[in-house]
Design a protein around this nucleic acid. Sequence first.
DNA 1: AGTCACGATGCAACCAGTTGCAACAATGCG
DNA 2: CGCATTGTTGCAACTGGTTGCATCGTGACT
Lengths: 148, 148
Amino acid sequence: MPLPHTEAPGYLVSNLASRGVRMTRQRRAILGIIETASHHLDAAQILRKAQKQEPEVDRVTIYRTLSLLKRHGLIDELDLMHLQGEKHFYERKTPREHVHMTCLRCGRVTEFESRLFDGLKKQVQKECRFQIAVARMEIGGYCSSCRA
Amino acid sequence: MPLPHTEAPGYLVSNLASRGVRMTRQRRAILGIIETASHHLDAAQILRKAQKQEPEVDRVTIYRTLSLLKRHGLIDELDLMHLQGEKHFYERKTPREHVHMTCLRCGRVTEFESRLFDGLKKQVQKECRFQIAVARMEIGGYCSSCRA
DNA sequence: AGTCACGATGCAACCAGTTGCAACAATGCG
DNA sequence: CGCATTGTTGCAACTGGTTGCATCGTGACT
């Protein structure tokens, strides 16, 4: 499922720069890759792509950059129900958070926006007096084409 | 937050045995620990407790038993927003699934049941024609005592 | 009780992600 | 423009979790 290209190219770079974050060759490469990604990427894929531009990049730098983006709320980290080992997937934060459904048979990932999801978050904020920073809802099961 | 002791002792053992799963010394020890746990445990804690009963148990056996329980839908695996590294926590499956909120400051974990959560799952099943096996909603943020 | 098939175990080696630390380089200032 | 500050990088070593494989032991059948 391709992600929509809602932001101008360079958005992550300029957003971070405007917050006083230093721009290095490595970061520029990594941010560009995440920005122009057409689907969910894992850390190893980002590393491989980044090394095509900057062969010296270390995987540690990938993880540190991803963690920087998480801290600034610019990407979301997904487990996708640990379908493939323990690795994580990353996507640019979209204006509306959505549910991720992973098919346990074919591995396809579907996204779903719902007013109930938004409502549930509001309810937690209000009834539990809990200030939400990140909310993640992930579902594992069987998609319509894989059901018996 | 203590978990309620809703099931008779030996429930996991007899449940699995009735499905034709072999019972070994190691499994009996691990299942007993999970059953009588008064809070969310991680794999390392389960290993340490199990080795008090059966000193020869290997961590691999812990992970394989946890994965067995997941496959049979008898426990839920939680990330708790990766608050502490990459480790996971485990809890017996309760009749009603609930949301887990983790405070990013004090680390406290709160559980919350909501009709909106149940409704959201129903909506996914119906509108996305997606048959749910596991649903996990985790929230990271700041609890009422930790908010500015 | 004795035998046997096959599932479960432990070990070693591996994958994903994190941390401590010394060397390095992006920015701000003169 | 050159320099100092301080954040960033790469390396090595580590933690948490998984996999392949030879050995072991459960539970079924006699």
